[in-house]
Computed example of a mutant assay.
Amino acid sequence: MLFNNTATVGDEGGLKEYLGGIQKTMDWKTWKPFVAGAELTFIIPAIGQELYDELSQPTAGLDAAQKQLKDKLRMALAWYAYLDAMPSLITVTGDGGMVMNSVPNTQAMPKWLFVATVKSHQEKADRYLEAALAWLEWKADWFPTWKGSASFLIQKSQLISSASEATKYFPAIQKSRRLYLSIRDYFNAAEEEFIRPVLGAAFENYLKGKLAAPEVLFSPEEKEVLALARKAVVQFGFALAVPYLNMNTDLRLVSETDGIVNENALTGERLNIIRSNALAAGHEKAAELRNCLNAQASATVFPLYYTSDLYVAPVESGHVRRPKNDPSNPFYVL
């Protein structure tokens, strides 16, 4: 585990070093299952089993870079564990069933405070984990175990591989890892449905292969194509996901807990407008991508695309023929 096997959460290397607001002493064995569950749910999928195993060694045996990363991941892990533990820690469970503590001079947490606390913990955990992952990508050369792992190859071969990257091309995501994870499969679906038909399977696989090999440099033309493809993927993926997301006006995921509405969710009409706008933006970027490919492709630039059936030579006027518009779409590509 990323935390030491301590007697209490306040011991050196324990949870209390990373959590604010814990005034009471609590046994480590009370928190350990929640820490293990949070690692399994949030940390291991984000960094891969190989790097997790490396960082799980005693801190004294790690180098400076590993210690820095472990410390950053602990910040996120502590709040994820706290989040998972909250519903259970406010009750006492035994052979007699489940009851609530009634300590003198204390009272049960009201519902509104529970809801606000959950939202605050969730925001902290997501923000800290995204910051740790951004630092890991920045210092990737320091972690050969991670760069050689299956998790890294799968993650980096995706056009949109993190919340930070999604935010770069669609600022409304606001580096929210929770929102990114809710849309990630739709980004992958958008690649298959909208981008592969533009790039062609061979050229797409070539680009994704280079993404998974960060030591290989992209040419300026390839960087331009990747940027356009990513802009299109983010818009298409978001459009595919919108009907299944419950969001507020800040595009944050919201929910209803025990009859208490946490936020005012967007209306169906507003979601449809957002979806239509995202689809239109996606098709616009896909058209730009197609034009860019046809304008620059040659026997030496994008040769896989140039020799495919998708390539259309620019006409003498300098314009590229565009596909026919579908009357069923709520937009028109000029």
Rank of each mutant, 00 (worst) to 15 (best):
A280Y: 01
S219W: 12
D71H: 07
G21M: 04
E221H: 14
P323W: 14
K168D: 14
L199K: 09
M109Y: 07
S276E: 11
P220Y: 10
D258M: 14
V103I: 13
A131R: 10
W135F: 11
T25G: 09
G37V: 00
V198R: 10
L245G: 10
D258K: 09
F302T: 02
P87Q: 05
E269I: 03
P330F: 12
R74N: 15
A78E: 02
F42I: 00
P33C: 08
L271H: 03
N188F: 09
Y332T: 08
E12A: 10
Q174K: 15
F194G: 03
L19P: 06
A299Q: 07
A108V: 09
V261Y: 12
S308F: 03
E316T: 07
R322N: 12
L228W: 11
P323D: 15
M109N: 05
Q158P: 00
E17H: 11
S157V: 05
A85L: 03
Q235V: 00
L62K: 04
T8P: 00
R74D: 04
F218I: 06
L228C: 09
E204H: 14
M86C: 02
K124D: 07
N329K: 15
K156A: 12
Y169S: 03
S151T: 07
L199D: 03
E12Q: 07
A81I: 02
E191N: 12
E256W: 04
A265N: 01
L83S: 06
D141L: 08
Y80H: 12
Y169D: 06
P87F: 14
P197N: 08
S308I: 04
D11L: 01
Y18R: 08
C292W: 03
Y82D: 07
D141T: 08
P144T: 08
P58S: 04
A281V: 00
K324C: 02
P33A: 09
V225P: 02
V234C: 15
E17K: 13
K139H: 13
A46L: 02
Q57H: 07
Q155W: 02
E193R: 15
K175N: 15
Y169E: 11
P214T: 05
S157W: 14
T93N: 12
S120A: 15
S219D: 08
A229Q: 09
I22Y: 13
V261W: 10
W142T: 05
E284L: 03
L181V: 01
S317H: 01
R321K: 14
P303M: 04
P104G: 10
H121L: 10
V35I: 14
I44T: 12
K223A: 11
E123F: 11
T300L: 02
L133C: 02
L279V: 00
A125W: 04
M100V: 03
G48I: 01
K24Y: 09
A313Q: 13
A134G: 07
G96Y: 10
V9N: 06
K29N: 12
S56I: 02
R230N: 06
L113E: 12
P171F: 13
A202D: 14
W138T: 13
A189N: 12
A60Q: 11
A46G: 03
M86D: 10
A116K: 13
A299W: 01
A202L: 12
S120V: 01
R74E: 09
M247H: 04
K175D: 15
E263F: 11
L289E: 05
Y306Q: 06
G21E: 07
A229M: 06
W138N: 09
